[in-house]
Amino acid sequence: MDETLDRFLPAYGHRTVHGITLAAPPQEVWAALNAVTLADLPLPRVLLALRTLPSRLRGRGPDLLDRSVPLADLFRRGDRWVTLAEEPGRILVLGRVARFWSPVPQEPAPLRDGEGFLAFGAPGYAKAVISHEVIAHGTGSRLVTETRIQGTDARARRRFAAYWVLIRPGVGLIRRSALAAAGRRCDGPRGGRPVPGE
């Protein structure tokens, strides 16, 4: 996964990595991951409701808390996140450029693809990538998510760093909850159980 992420954001100021090993085959884990919705994440849903409240009060993104839509699809609604790389069954990488620290995140003109994300360099923004990867691991699978963020200039990096102190615990909770929800959704007699020792 590092090679794919390094293509889009090789230098970053902030990073989180979370993973879980499951006793289920990769294709089952991938399907489960892509079926996770906000309905599977009660506490993270509350955090997202608080974070998106200013946007929703201004009539922007009323669908941000749609509990019936898979998270991967919810992220891509309204051109907020763009697909940077995707290999179905193995990896999905999404990217976004915004002033995340604003109550209502301000974004430049929508990015259309990975090339637009790479080319973007206007000051005053932060670039973020989120990846999910399923890796064969013995008779089961390893499901890993990584987040990277980098400001486009020194001022943006300072502003995002202050914001990151506030949101990092919530980001970690959301990522871990999504991984656990994917594990619960796995089918089969050994499905979503984490492998002992993880």
Score class of each variant (00 low, 15 high):
4 T>Y: 07
5 L>G: 09
8 F>Y: 15
12 Y>V: 12
13 G>C: 11
18 H>F: 01
21 T>D: 15
26 P>Y: 09
26 P>I: 02
26 P>S: 04
31 A>I: 01
31 A>D: 06
33 L>H: 09
39 A>V: 02
43 L>Q: 08
46 V>G: 04
51 R>S: 03
54 P>I: 06
58 R>G: 04
63 D>F: 14
65 L>T: 03
66 D>N: 09
67 R>Q: 14
70 P>A: 03
72 A>Q: 06
72 A>N: 03
75 F>V: 07
76 R>T: 13
80 R>Q: 12
81 W>E: 05
84 L>H: 05
85 A>D: 15
88 P>V: 05
92 L>V: 07
92 L>C: 03
96 R>H: 14
103 P>N: 09
108 P>I: 01
113 D>G: 06
117 F>R: 09
123 P>A: 14
124 G>H: 06
124 G>C: 11
124 G>R: 11
132 H>W: 14
135 I>D: 01
143 L>I: 08
146 E>N: 00
150 Q>E: 14
154 A>F: 10
156 A>Q: 04
157 R>Y: 00
158 R>I: 09
161 A>H: 02
162 A>E: 07
171 V>Q: 13
175 R>Y: 09
177 S>H: 03
179 L>H: 08
181 A>Y: 08
184 R>M: 11
189 P>L: 15
192 G>C: 06
193 R>M: 08
193 R>L: 14
